[in-house]
Design a protein around this nucleic acid. Structure first.
Lengths: 174, 174
DNA sequence: ACCGTCATGTAATCGGTTACATGATTCT
DNA sequence: AGAATCATGTAACCGATTACATGACGGT
């Protein structure tokens, strides 16, 4: 074991999800992300297959393969995996995220703001509605972590809507 | 020419910057991004060397290499490069950006919100101050595109500060 | 029994990151 | 003249995306 790999955010996502689930197959992970995490940090499904393998090879996960039928792979945290996750989680990050918004990038390079706003406003409104429903539905049985990130998502959508509305409506011809 | 490459956001950034500059060396590009674009979409310096090369090979840029001295490479848009950029810029994007915030990711997986807020709040405040100074300094001689993205950056920093402050101060022991 | 979709996985490619390396300038 | 920093570039590695492919299962 332990071929010394570098742990990326993707690694910690996999570790974190597996910790929450106890044991999981790549497909389980996919389902778990779709629900909540995927809204602010999505992953390709292929990575949910390759990343656990990488982690297992490095000793952070234990792999168990079904004998019959689908021969699915099930993963669990090892001690070392749990420790890595804890250490990561404990260390606060100063790093600030960049917006990295494609629409904004186009605006930066001179795209027409109103045309862009025309598609971005409804898209963000839809997303906001989705979050609101999620909040109302899941209500209190959401763990504090996911609940906080959901709140962040709601806030972010609101300011994006404002932002694009402002661009759309500014300098209106009188 | 034209080995059929796929154009990524990075490609368009390079094309866009070169359009703005008329002609540029990788180092020019680096300087240009540092100022403004880099705040919401940063690039590794190595890519500012490899990406223009890729684009030149595919016919989107024309390369001119200095004969003497530093033998720097200068790049200009070709017709095809200009067209690709225009087409991209003209097409509004529905795609929504994900937050992809490392601090948020840790929170999602159970990190202590107050500890995280303790480092995130000042970091975001510093960033906000930087943007404000940029806005006050550059004032009106900022083109509309960059000006709009700067406005977005200011908004985003404000809500992040609010968000982390709320986490920091909630459930205060009485 | 068949068909469509869900589930599960691998292979190849490629962009992006990291690391290395050296040539110019500038400052003391 | 030497040190430090700025400028310029290349090479190697690797994670991430894309594409391909097939097996199971549920419904009609």
């Amino acid at each position: 074991m332990s071929s010394e790999i570098r742990l990326t955010p993707t690694s910690y996502i996999v570790l974190g999800l597996i910790e929450a689930a106890g044991e999981a197959t790549p497909y389980d992970l996919k389902q778990m992300t779709a629900a909540s995490l995927g809204n602010f940090w999505s992953l390709q499904h292929a990575q949910l297959y390759t990343e656990p393998e990488r982690l297992a090879k490095a000793g952070y996960l234990k792999e168990r393969r079904e004998k019959g039928g689908r021969r699915r792979k099930h993963y669990k945290l090892t001690k070392s995996g749990g420790q890595a996750l804890s250490a990561w989680r404990k260390e606060p990050t100063v790093e600030l995220t960049e917006l990295r918004d494609l629409a904004l990038l186009k605006i930066f390079f001179g795209a027409d703001p109103k045309a862009m706003a025309a598609v971005q406003v409804p898209a963000h409104e839809a997303k906001l509605a989705e979050y609101e429903e999620l909040r109302d539905r899941a209500a209190d049985d959401l763990p504090p972590g996911p609940s906080a990130t959901l709140a962040a998502g709601l806030e972010a959508e609101r300011i994006w809507i404002d932002f694009w509305l402002r661009l759309r409506d500014e300098d209106e011809p009188a």
